[in-house]
């Protein structure tokens, strides 16, 4: 389904990815986690063809993305991290447009978009401009846009940003059911407890390398600590957060000494 071999990438002399080997199979929900700057988004962007100039091999659906052209993107759905969206279009216009880019007929795309909007309880804003949406609504629109064309592989970069607890549960169930139907989901996040609940396989990326790979139970057994956050801390050496919090509060309280 998805295969990375010795993937390396560097920006301006700084090596961001230091040789990643990963094979993902159909029906898996991969939680791709790691601290900020570990190279999660870079990996996703390489697989989407947004960044070139990497070393190593990337194969999606058995196609080498460097040599086999752009057609593989038709089977991919993508929710970008920072909610890039043409927000002076209406949801209807935007979703139909994206559906058409994925090769759907305009009427089909529009019908499907409307149905999905309705399913998410947003039917009354279907013809409103996205710029008037709340953060959660925008995020749901983005998620819809990534699912319209029934992709086989779904890339999600922090997909639950700004969603309320209810919606998070809905999305989680949707992902579970899609995976059960044979879709593969590649989920990148740094929020531990969500990844723990959704994923059936967790890949932990630290400093451009895979630090751990396995189910939550396996990772737990490995580190003998309770929650995934614990594992995460153990693996990344980030144990000082209580201290950090104290430090922040101390600085805040001294704030009135400034100019």
């Amino acid at each position: 389904m998805l295969s990375l071999q010795n993937l390396m990438m560097s920006f301006a002399g700084k090596q961001v990815l230091k040789g990643i080997d990963l094979d993902v199979y159909q029906g898996q929900i991969i939680g791709y986690i790691g601290p900020n700057g570990a190279g999660k988004s870079t990996t996703l962007k390489i697989m989407l063809g947004l960044i070139e100039g990497y070393n190593g091999t990337v194969e999606l659906f058995g196609q080498n993305i460097r040599t086999d052209g752009h057609t593989y993107k038709r089977r991919i759905g993508y929710v970008p991290e920072n909610a890039e969206i043409y927000d002076n279009l209406t949801a209807c216009e935007y979703l139909t447009f994206l559906g058409e880019l994925y090769g759907l007929e305009q009427a089909v795309a529009e019908r499907k978009a409307e149905e999905l909007m309705t399913a998410f309880g947003m039917e009354d804003v279907f013809h409103s401009r996205i710029s008037s949406f709340s953060k959660g609504m925008k995020q749901k629109t983005l998620i819809i846009s990534s699912l319209l064309h029934d992709p086989d592989l779904i890339f999600l970069d922090e997909p639950l940003n700004g969603l309320d607890a209810n919606s998070v549960m809905v999305i989680k169930d949707v992902l579970d059911k899609l995976a059960a139907k044979g879709k593969t989901i590649f989920y990148s996040s740094h929020i531990m407890d969500v990844v723990e609940k959704i994923s059936n396989r967790i890949v932990l990326l630290v400093d451009g390398k895979i630090a751990a790979d396995g189910s939550f139970e396996e990772l737990k057994a490995e580190s003998k600590q309770g929650s995934l956050e614990g594992i995460f801390k153990g693996l990344t050496g980030f144990e000082a957060h209580a201290h950090t919090a104290d430090n922040v509060v101390r600085i805040v309280m001294d704030g009135d000494e400034g100019e």
């Binding site: 989407l48 063809g49 947004l50 052209g69 752009h70 057609t71 593989y72 993107k73 038709r74 991919i76 993508y78 970008p80 920072n82 890039e84 969206i85 043409y86 994206l98 880019l101 994925y102 090769g103």
Partner: peptide, 14 residues
């Protein structure tokens, strides 16, 4: 470059 994330991730040739 803002188009990049929206358009280049779709199955459209650059």
């Amino acid at each position: 470059v803002r188009d990049k994330t929206i358009l280049h991730t779709k199955p459209v040739s650059s």
